[in-house]
């Protein structure tokens, strides 16, 4: 650090760095722009800070989803056959339509920003409504996709093992001695302590009646193993019972296919939560737009909310090929 120059050149300093605020603007700006917060000098200063803040937030979103993308990559790398087989259970057309819906809603969002910038309130309101409807449409299509999968018992984790009642005979269902699909039950690990609602099956027998060996070290025993330790028939000598993880309706399905659906639900589910959050944001923008808060001077919330909505779109742009377009 060199010693100081005699008199710091304020203007040069402020402009030499990335927009550190320029003290030259004063209270005149604040009187002119009521939305300007006291610690910002100009509307541009405030807008610029908000944008940087939002981009940092978007970076956290990328890393947040990034964890799931990494999990996806690791699992896919380990079980390539699972991914290429199971992805055929996803409906490419539905996924494609959803992609288009999101892209269109992104477009209307970008247009909304433009309308706000040019003081066109009606256009802004219409675009926000269209964006909102895009979000709703996406969720509706997603709902149909999900419910279809759940109906086919293409769900996550241990629940995956359970055949739907109509697919196999009554006797076989009983033989597998697991609870019916998608019942909200206690966590089988420890039903006594904290009631965690779970979609996992519990053995038909009382959990405490299972021999220690079948549960400990806990987590290493699959339901089949539990049944095995119980002396219940597990079907392991049945040639069609390829692996405990096989989906019983489709006997060709490779082992561990449930992992594909686990990561599918994790990623699309988290994305869905973001769409819901986006709907709240757009709704709030809509309310303010109708109130007439935005103008060419002040449209930061529209711009920043738009950035959020675009990142939701961006993530879907990658989810779509990764799940639906695997050959």
């Amino acid at each position: 650090m060199t010693t100081l120059q005699s008199q710091p050149n304020h203007a040069a300093d402020a402009h030499g760095t990335d927009g550190a605020h320029d003290g030259a603007h004063g209270s005149a700006e604040h009187a002119k722009y009521p939305f300007l917060q006291h610690h910002f000098d100009t509307p541009y200063h405030q807008f610029d800070s908000a944008k940087l803040g939002m981009w940092l937030f978007l970076a956290t979103e990328v890393l947040f989803f990034g964890g799931l993308f990494v999990a996806y990559a690791v699992l896919r790398n380990r079980f390539p056959e699972v991914f290429s087989y199971s992805s055929h259970y996803l409906d490419t057309i539905m996924g494609g339509i959803n992609t288009c819906v999101l892209i269109l809603s992104s477009l209307t969002m970008a247009l909304a920003v433009r309308f706000a910038q040019t003081n066109r309130r009606t256009g802004l309101i219409i675009c926000l409504i269209l964006t909102f409807m895009g979000a709703v449409g996406f969720m509706v299509i997603k709902y149909f996709e999900y419910s279809h999968k759940i109906h086919d018992n293409l769900v996550w984790g241990t629940t995956f093992y359970v055949p739907p009642h109509d697919a196999i005979g009554e006797a076989e269902t009983k033989e597998l001695s697991v609870a019916p699909t998608t019942s909200i039950t206690l966590n089988p690990v420890n039903p006594a302590v904290f009631a965690v609602p779970t979609l996992a099956p519990i053995p038909a027998v009382d959990a405490s009646a299972i021999k220690q060996a079948s549960r400990a070290p806990v987590g290493l025993a699959t339901p089949t193993q539990m049944a095995h330790a119980e002396g219940l028939p597990t079907g392991e000598h049945d040639p069609s019972f390829a692996h405990p993880a096989t989906h019983l309706v489709d006997k060709k399905m490779p082992a561990n296919s449930h992992l594909f659906f686990a990561i599918y639900y994790a990623m699309t589910g988290l994305h869905g939560v973001h769409v819901l959050a986006g709907m709240v944001v757009i709704g709030w923008l809509l309310k303010r737009a109708i109130r007439g808060d935005f103008s060419s001077d002040y449209f930061t919330p529209v711009d920043v909310g738009g950035l959020y909505w675009h990142i939701v779109d961006l993530i879907w742009i990658f989810l779509f090929p990764l799940f639906y377009l695997i050959h």
């Binding site: 996550w156 966590n187 987590g219 699959t222």
Partner: peptide, 17 residues
Amino acid sequence: VERAFNIGIFDPSMGGD
């Protein structure tokens, strides 16, 4: 999610890691 719903991504007995 793993603990509540047994999705198995981290569970070795379910193919997880």
